[in-house]
Amino acid sequence: MKSKSIKEKVMHIVFLAAAMVCIMAVVLICVFLLANGVPAMGKIGVFNFLLGKTWRPGQDIYGILPMILGSIYVTAGAIIIGVPIGIMTAVFMARYCPKKIYAPLKGAIDLLAGIPSVVYGFFGLVIIVPFVRDTFGGSGNSILTACVLLGFMILPTIIGVCESSLRAVPEEYYQNALALGATHERSIFKVVLPTAKSGVLTGVVLGIGRAIGETMAVIMIAGNQARMPKGLLKGVRTLTANIVMEMGYAADLHREALIATGVVLFVFILLINLCLAAIKKGVEQ
């Protein structure tokens, strides 16, 4: 009896330690980012840094507005392309899909989630870039290309979350709608989907998180020009791309400015997580 309680205590501590490792990682990253990034922002000037339109490390000009806008545009585009496809796929999977197709389809979507981003990048470089260049003109390395590719990349996240939330809607809702004379489509889009609203929103927000943090694939196809975004068919540099491109060579204030770029990205992710928390709170109420 006693040995059992000791065992339980020991395991209790082991679990606590595991949880602490996780929390420590987050805390250390926060401390590192803030300690290294905030002084740089101070040196450059917060407004010069956040609202500066020019990024020329060679001349000590560090303005990351082009990259902030780049990240926002690319993410918005990915949402415009990915969300409708994702939600409709989820509806199909949950409500229309015959059993025979379901298993291979589910497998394919899971596979889509597991493909490394550098492979997505290569796919974009080989297929989407030439396609955009031949169809719409320009060089092909553009905002549009990045949006399309990121739209693909966020699909598994959106589909997964949306589908499970659609399945969580009680079957009676659907049946009652049918009993009232609504068609199959109408019951789904007017009753089931609105009930699963918060789950769908969660999926979309998670998709935004994935799109804004994506690096490798975007670097390969977006062109990475460090200037204000000029149009759908012109290139763009995102926050993540800015950090990765220049970290290898950066020194002194340039390096600190890149870490400060990381702080901005971190704030974005924080905002996204707050949105998630707000949505969850809305569900509980």
Binding site: P130, G140, N141, N224, Q225, A226, G248
Partner: peptide
């Protein structure tokens, strides 16, 4: 030029030029 596409990798440079006739 600010319009230049930037790559941090020789392989991507080669690939971009080999597939884009105007590069």
């Amino acid at each position: 030029t600010e319009e230049a596409i930037i790559t941090n990798n020789t392989a991507v440079m080669l690939y971009c030029v080999s597939t884009n006739p105007y590069a």
